[in-house]
Simulated assay, not measured.
Amino acid sequence: MDPRPPDETPGPGQQPKPPFDRERFIFKTLAVVIGTQLLIYSLAAGVCGQRALVGRPVGQICPGTLEQLQGGFDSTLKLLLALLGGAALTRMAPPS
């Protein structure tokens, strides 16, 4: 008896499962992270702007929060650029 599992061949009408695409997964995850950061930043800016328009004191919370959110957004963009640059370099490298 053969101890190996039987080959899983797709049946009629079934497509073979494509291999896991690591780059696509990373870029989709980064897109979700960047979208979430933009949503949070927009919400915080909207709340601070609304408080300023109504005439309430903005205080120290709004400027500090917006600076902190902007720093996180900048670091995410730097990570995205680094990943794109690394992917471009691996595509340009001669095959080993």
Rank of each mutant, 00 (worst) to 15 (best):
G71P: 00
Q14A: 12
A82D: 08
G13K: 08
P57F: 04
I61R: 15
G35L: 09
Q14G: 03
Q15K: 14
F27D: 05
P10C: 10
V32Q: 03
R24N: 10
F27M: 05
F27W: 03
I61L: 15
I40A: 03
V58T: 14
K17C: 10
G55Q: 01
R24Y: 06
A45N: 03
P19M: 04
Q70A: 11
Q60A: 11
Q14T: 13
P18Q: 06
I40E: 02
V47I: 09
E8Q: 15
T9Y: 12
P16V: 08
R24I: 01
F25S: 09
V54Q: 09
L81D: 04
G13T: 05
A52H: 06
Q50P: 00
G11W: 05
I40D: 00
L81G: 12
G46T: 11
D74K: 14
R56Q: 06
P12Y: 14
G35I: 07
G46N: 03
Q60D: 07
S75Y: 13
L79T: 15
P18N: 07
A31I: 00
E8Y: 12
E8I: 11
L38K: 07
F27G: 00
T9S: 10
G11L: 10
A31T: 02
F27E: 01
E8V: 09
Q50F: 09
T29A: 12
G13Q: 11
F20R: 08
Q60Y: 07
G35Q: 04
K17H: 10
C48T: 03
P6I: 07
G71N: 12
T29G: 02
V47Y: 03
Q14Y: 05
P16L: 08
V47E: 01
T76Q: 05
A44P: 04
L81A: 14
L79C: 14
C48A: 14
T36G: 02
A44K: 02
A52E: 10
P6Y: 11
V54L: 11
Q68A: 11
L81Y: 06
K28L: 04
A52S: 15
T29M: 05
V54F: 01
D7S: 14
L83F: 15
Q68L: 13
C62W: 14
G85Q: 07
A44I: 02
D74Q: 15
V58D: 10
L77C: 12
F27L: 07
L66C: 08
V58P: 03
